[in-house]
């Protein structure tokens, strides 16, 4: 009854709360871990030491190159119709403003369509997007492409409503992308509250003027590492089940939820299995990715280096959407593999978490999934997750040790059983 032993140890036994306490120690010590920052490299070195001290196998760092962008000093002040200092967060990879900033009238739009319809009005203006939140996957396009679309019609800068399910006046940062041949303009996220207020002001015909200052700057790529630790397989060591989370974060809060939780339940999964003296037939490999927030940069280089062994990967797992109380496992794979995973999840009956949903995914494992490797991720409270996501509220206070215990138990049972079954998961 390996599954029960893992669950008891993780949720009721001496290992309960360990993932939370380990995470708190790291994020309290280091803080947030932006790609290219010293904080991130310090965190990697700390984790390298932690994993060696934990006695895991083949602990090593795989070198990669990652983007190095810094936020600098930034501010946005509404000058008309009244003075109002706005909370903003520059978006990742944005350029800065001139030292004196950009002072311009605002055009408020609620969609790309409206921007196109009112294109003549956008020239020489700061475009404010007040797009409604539908789902993160759907709404994030405004954050990612908002600057490019506005630049195409002559805007000077963009201020984009935070992509968030709930807001207490806290901006949500994130990556954005420029496009070759389109002028680069500064872009930042604003709070849901300010976006809605400006929308109301505009609908009453009020003229809105904002002064935007951003010291953002991009530097040459920096050196970093993906952090790897294993429990080497006893029978088929060349075959792999990959368990992962990412160690980098945005420069907000402590980077506890995104993705300290995912990284530390992945470590916890290996620790639990080791504590029980278990060794699966296949190798259990944990990877803590670097520079996920800039688009899976570390993970892509890992995939390029290791894809030659793709036929030996039975399952790739990433936890990167919260470690609140899981409601089930998200899975992508063949029908045959899915019914096997449904059997595996029955082992979590003691925790009453047995569902297998579709849509197993993760920025860092999607390369493998798109190439045909079965993939899994955790399904939990996404409304709560996106309330804290990429904000200064992403701290240990948003985390729950008991829920992390359950998430770690689920992660460990799934990883161990799939790694120990006689056959790999079948593919299409």
């Amino acid at each position: 009854d390996v599954a029960k032993a893992i669950i008891n140890l993780a949720v009721y036994g001496k290992s309960q709360n360990r993932s939370y306490e380990r995470l708190a120690l790291l994020v309290d010590t280091v803080g947030p871990r932006l790609s290219g920052s010293k904080n991130l490299e310090k965190a990697i070195q700390i984790m390298y030491q932690n994993l060696q001290e934990n006695g895991l196998d083949n602990v090593h760092l795989e070198p990669v190159k990652i983007p190095h962008w810094e936020r600098g000093e930034e501010s946005a002040v509404m000058l008309q119709p009244r003075i109002h200092k706005m909370a903003i967060l520059g978006l990742g990879s944005s350029i800065g403003t001139p030292p004196e900033g950009i002072t311009a009238e605002v055009l408020v739009v609620t969609s790309f369509n409206e921007l196109q319809q009112r294109a003549p009005e956008a020239k020489g203006k700061i475009v404010v997007y007040n797009q409604p939140y539908v789902t993160y996957a759907e709404t994030v396009q405004y954050r990612v492409q908002g600057a490019v679309e506005a630049a195409k019609v002559g805007a000077l800068a963009t201020l984009i409503r935070s992509v968030a399910s709930f807001s207490i006046y806290s901006p949500h940062t994130g990556i954005q992308e420029y496009q070759d041949g389109v002028p680069k303009i500064p872009t930042a996220c604003i709070t849901v509250e300010d976006a809605e207020m400006m929308s109301r002001m505009a609908s009453h015909g009020l003229k809105i003027v904002i002064q935007l200052k951003m010291g953002a700057k991009t530097y040459p790529d920096a050196d970093s590492f993906n952090t790897v630790a294993e429990i080497t397989g006893s029978k088929y060591p060349e075959q792999v089940v990959l368990v992962s989370g990412h160690l980098d974060s945005w420069d907000v809060g402590q980077g506890a939820l995104d993705d300290g939780g995912g990284a530390f339940i992945s470590w916890e999964a290996l620790s639990l299995i080791k504590d029980l003296g278990l060794r699966p037939k296949r190798t259990l490999r944990m990877v803590l990715w670097t520079a996920e927030e800039q688009g899976g940069i570390g993970a892509y280089q890992y995939y390029q280096l290791h894809k030659v062994n793709i036929s030996n990967y039975s399952l790739v797992m990433e936890s990167d959407s919260g470690t609140f109380l899981p409601t089930g496992l998200q899975f992508t794979g063949s029908t045959k593999a899915r019914v096997i995973m449904e059997e595996v999840m029955k082992l979590l009956q003691p925790l009453n978490i047995t569902q297998v949903f579709s849509g197993g995914e993760g920025t860092d494992i999607n390369f493998w999934i798109q190439a045909g490797v079965p993939g899994a991720s955790i399904c939990d409270d996404l409304y709560k997750y996106f309330s804290f996501h990429h904000t200064n509220g992403d701290t240990m206070t948003a985390m729950n040790p008991k829920e992390m215990n359950v998430a770690a138990a689920l992660w460990a049972v799934v990883a161990f059983v799939v790694a120990d079954m006689e056959e790999m998961l079948p593919r299409e």
Binding site: K346, E423, L425
Partner: peptide, 24 residues
């Protein structure tokens, strides 16, 4: 070596089901 490289399982689903149940 019961590995699954060419897409053909060596085992029936019932066997796999029993194998998984043994972990519970």
């Amino acid at each position: 070596k019961a590995i699954y490289k060419n897409g053909i399982s060596q085992r029936t689903f019932e066997e796999i089901k029993e194998e998984i149940a043994s972990y519970g």
